[in-house]
């Protein structure tokens, strides 16, 4: 197996061990803790008042526009990282090229700002 893949194998093993450790802690708790079921315990908690309706309902998610903007800039970040490592090789050419890219994306943010997308409704 190549060195590269092996590094990711270690990630998988580590994740398995971490989850295993958590399972052990939870199993340990199962041996100790009491089980005394009462119907009232399993009601939805709303500060002592009976819950009206359910939480799985239509909710206005106010930041969905931010989520769209987020995708834009996250993709930008993915492009910037490999470029950032090689900047020494590219020199001024790379610097100007990426400046143009960043400025264009910044204009997108400015547009959203001017369109009052970034304002709380």
């Amino acid at each position: 197996m190549s060195e590269f893949l092996r590094d990711y194998l270690t990630v998988a093993i580590f994740a398995a061990v971490a989850i295993g450790l958590l399972l052990v802690v939870l199993a340990l708790g199962k041996l100790i803790r009491p089980v005394r079921p009462q119907a009232d315990k399993y009601l939805t908690y709303e500060s002592g008042v009976d819950a009206v309706g359910t939480a799985w309902d239509q909710t206005p998610v106010r930041y969905y526009v931010f989520a769209l903007l987020f995708v834009l800039f996250d993709v930008e970040a993915v492009f910037i990282f490999p470029w950032a490592i090689q900047l020494e090789t590219y020199g001024w050419f790379g610097a100007i090229e990426m400046s143009v890219f960043i400025v264009i994306l910044a204009l997108g943010l400015l547009y959203a700002w001017r369109k009052k997308v970034l304002q709380w409704l």
Partner: peptide, 21 residues
């Protein structure tokens, strides 16, 4: 399935989106 929990979860997601960048 609790309204407070859902609001908290949504706020956490909005916060991640804003500060991840």
């Amino acid at each position: 399935a609790n309204k407070f929990s859902l609001m908290g979860g949504l706020r956490a997601a909005g916060q991640l989106i804003a500060y991840e960048l």
